[in-house]
Design a protein around this nucleic acid. Structure first.
Length: 389
RNA sequence: GGGUAGGUACCGAAGCGGUCAAACGGGGCAGACUGUAAAUCUGCUGGCUCAGCCUUCAGAGGUUCGAAUCCUCUCCUGCCCA
């Protein structure tokens, strides 16, 4: 593919590219470009928000370029302040390594493993002496760091900014020098960090990397960015039903965004919003599982929620044993779906009519279930139900 | 280092000796309505063997019949000055 055509593909869907002209020049070099993406293994699950940028990296691979995936095992110990209004807690080393493992496994659902160079940035940072660190710091000015919006805002609001946080962009930037990146991509919140990398490269006599940012995907709440720590995400490794259900819960206003950023296409405004949402959910599930699973998730959802027919749905089994007290039974139900709830929580759900046996509200916490419950469906809340054994 | 303002539940924020498991707002959860959307109304939102009991208001002591509220020390944060 000609450099011009490649440029058209690569810039599609991006938030900004600094600059397209430079990217074109690099493409004309005729060698595979080194396209860098840094990920922070702060939690084990990759979610749809990450896929926006991973899909872009895959495009680079498809065009014959070299993907360089940097696992920020070192940076995760600092905590990226990007987009944060608070200091992020750093992680324990073992936790980070375990997370990194799951992370890469999931990233290869999108990336071509054979064409991806995976590096841990601890490789170089763990070897640095304190003098090296000070020297690295000398390449950047305080004023540059203070230009950054997150810091500016926090300072304006009298919130703390700790010194380790201003190291983060410098450290991430140095990664670009180490891997000699030609292009670095990231969410729009990474603009500052990526620019620091570009400056550091120039400082070291390398050509500066092209900066490519991609729009940030809003989380299920439709307001804040999708993030593990805000628990508003859909993980790429999640169960089909879970994934489908989460996608169905997004607001109509959000759907258009998901269509463009996840499916890479414009949403058909004419169709019924619910149809659009079902189709979005089905396609995303299909992508991370397979077509048949996507269709099955949709069919299951239809019986469970559209037809409200829980009896036919595929539910987790739950053996109550001799237990018949309502609260204790519901607690066993939650255990069966892998959730922990306090008795107070459950009592509340019962009193408010959320807990139901075959569609009948069990609103008295002191009542007991009938002796024979086998085959009956115990509904716990909107999303969770179990089949009693 | 000096001065000063603070540290209350998931977050923000009242309370400043008893009637405080702690107002109010946000968030979250549930019910009604629905398309597991939005909007709206209602309820709940520390734990438990739940009409009662237990553990909380940065931490440790103390005063008091009684402390989130008063005193002492400690830790932490903001702001101003150096």
């Amino acid at each position: 593919m000609s450099p011009e055509d490649q440029l058209a593909v690569l810039t599609r869907g991006t938030a900004q590219v600094l600059s397209e002209k430079e990217l074109l020049e690099k493409l004309k070099l005729g060698r595979p470009l080194r396209a860098k993406l840094g990920v922070d293994p702060t939690a084990p699950d990759l979610h749809l928000g990450h896929t926006v940028v991973l899909e872009k990296l895959r495009q680079f691979q498809e065009l014959g370029h070299q993907a360089v995936l940097i696992i920020g095992d070192f940076t995760a110990q600092i905590g990226d302040p990007s987009g944060r209004s608070k200091t992020r807690p750093p992680l324990e080393r073992e936790e980070i390594l375990a997370n990194a493992e799951t992370y890469t496994a999931q990233a290869f659902k999108i990336l071509d493993k054979g064409k991806t160079e995976v590096v841990f940035n601890g490789e170089w940072f763990n070897k640095m002496s304190f003098v090296d660190v000070i020297r690295l710091n000398s390449k950047v000015t305080m004023q540059q760091m203070l230009q950054r919006e997150d810091f500016k805002n926090r300072i304006a609001k009298n919130q703390e900014v700790r010194l380790h946080e201003i190291q983060y962009p410098i450290v991430q930037g140095w990664d670009s020098v180490e891997v000699r990146a030609d292009v670095e991509m990231g969410g729009t919140d990474q603009l500052f960090n990526i620019l620091v990398g570009r400056d550091l490269q120039k400082e070291q006599g390398q050509p500066g990397q092209v900066v490519m940012t991609l729009p940030i995907l809003e989380g299920l709440d439709g307001v804040q960015k999708m993030s593990k720590s805000l628990d508003n995400y859909v993980g790429v490794a999640e169960e089909p039903g879970e994934m489908y259900g989460k996608l169905m819960s997004i607001s109509d206003a959000l759907m258009g965004r998901y269509y463009t950023l996840l499916l890479g296409e414009a949403m058909d405004e004419g169709a019924h919003p619910m149809e659009l949402k079902k189709s979005l959910a089905e396609r995303v599930v299909s992508r991370y599982h397979d077509e048949a699973t996507g269709a099955a998730a949709r069919a299951d959802w239809d019986t469970r929620f559209s037809k409200k027919d829980l009896s036919a749905a595929d539910l987790p089994a739950c053996d109550l044993g001799q237990e018949r007290r309502v609260i204790a039974s519901a607690a066993l139900g939650y255990a069966a779906v892998g959730e922990k709830r306090s008795n107070g929580d459950i009592r509340r759900l019962v009193q408010q009519g959320s807990v139901q046996l075959d569609g009948e509200k069990l609103s008295d916490p002191k009542a007991e279930l009938p002796a024979d419950v086998s085959g009956k469906v115990l509904r716990l809340d909107k999303k969770r139900s179990v089949r009693l054994v």
